[in-house]
Every structure is written in C-alpha cells, then in structure tokens.
Simulated assay, not measured.
Amino acid sequence: MNKAEQAGKIGGLVGGFKRRERQKFLVIFIKLVEMEEFPDLKLTSCLAKKLIAAFSGCKSISNDVLIKEFGKPGNKIKQQNLDDIVLVLTERYSETYKSLWNDAKKKIEDDANEYKRQKIQEMRTSIS
C-alpha cells in the first residue's frame, strides 16, 4: 500500500470515527431533552430525527441508529404537531445544545487525533 492509499485509509477511518462520535453525542442530547420534557413518553424516531436536524444545522444521523435508539413498538405521538414541538424545543434548548456541542466537539477532535495517531502507528508496525 502506497502512502496516498494509507493516508486515504486513515482519513476514512478517522472520518468514520468522528461521525460515530457525533451521532453518539446527538442521541445522548436528544435523550436528555426527552427525559426532561417527556418523562412518561418516548420520542418517535421521526421526532428525534427532526430535533437532531434542527439542533445540528440539518446534519442527520443514520436511520439505523434512530430506529435502534428511538423506534419502539407501539410508540405513537401525534404527527401533526411535530414541527411545533421541534420549534419550541429548539428554542428552549439551543443554548444548552451549543454549549454542550462545543465541549463535545473539542473532545471528539482530541479523540480523533489520538485515534489517527494509533492507526498510523498500527500501519507502521504492520509494514515493518
């Protein structure tokens, strides 16, 4: 494997790592909002997806992750009010989101740099 291929492979691994960490953060944040706002209800995956898009600037996460985390059998909520719910919750939690996301983003970058360093070291070791 030449250097360009190695760099591409490492870049892909690091990008995937960052995407998974961002997804974890978004799921945890939405679950915190869920616990705070709807202690007796579970959010639908559709509402969770809309909230994630609203908080994260239209970035989304894997549908598989949404279904795993928020898709529960018999979990129904009135669909017509989703946009209103999203608007109210994003206004209420936007400052909290920004603060937590800034901290999480720094940690993800630090963790990604460490992950990259480990992968580079693993590749060097496997070539030797």
Score class of each variant (00 low, 15 high):
residue 2 N to H: 07
residue 5 E to S: 09
residue 7 A to K: 15
residue 9 K to Y: 14
residue 9 K to V: 11
residue 10 I to P: 00
residue 20 R to E: 04
residue 21 E to A: 15
residue 22 R to V: 07
residue 22 R to K: 13
residue 22 R to S: 14
residue 24 K to Q: 12
residue 25 F to P: 12
residue 26 L to K: 02
residue 26 L to A: 11
residue 29 F to E: 00
residue 30 I to V: 15
residue 31 K to F: 05
residue 35 M to S: 15
residue 38 F to H: 13
residue 40 D to M: 08
residue 40 D to F: 11
residue 42 K to T: 03
residue 44 T to K: 06
residue 45 S to W: 01
residue 45 S to C: 03
residue 45 S to F: 03
residue 47 L to C: 02
residue 48 A to E: 00
residue 55 F to C: 07
residue 56 S to V: 12
residue 59 K to Q: 12
residue 59 K to H: 05
residue 61 I to S: 00
residue 61 I to H: 10
residue 62 S to Q: 09
residue 64 D to E: 06
residue 67 I to H: 05
residue 70 F to C: 07
residue 71 G to T: 06
residue 71 G to V: 01
residue 75 N to P: 07
residue 75 N to V: 13
residue 75 N to I: 02
residue 76 K to G: 06
residue 76 K to R: 14
residue 76 K to S: 08
residue 77 I to G: 04
residue 77 I to V: 08
residue 78 K to L: 15
residue 78 K to R: 09
residue 81 N to M: 13
residue 84 D to H: 12
residue 84 D to M: 12
residue 87 L to C: 04
residue 91 E to M: 09
residue 91 E to R: 09
residue 92 R to L: 06
residue 92 R to V: 08
residue 94 S to Y: 04
residue 96 T to K: 15
residue 99 S to H: 11
residue 101 W to H: 10
residue 101 W to T: 07
residue 102 N to S: 03
residue 103 D to F: 01
residue 104 A to D: 02
residue 104 A to V: 02
residue 105 K to M: 01
residue 110 D to K: 11
residue 112 A to S: 08
residue 112 A to Y: 01
residue 115 Y to E: 12
residue 116 K to A: 14
residue 117 R to A: 15
residue 117 R to F: 10
residue 119 K to S: 10
residue 120 I to D: 11
residue 121 Q to C: 06
residue 124 R to I: 15
residue 125 T to L: 14
residue 127 I to Q: 06
residue 128 S to T: 07
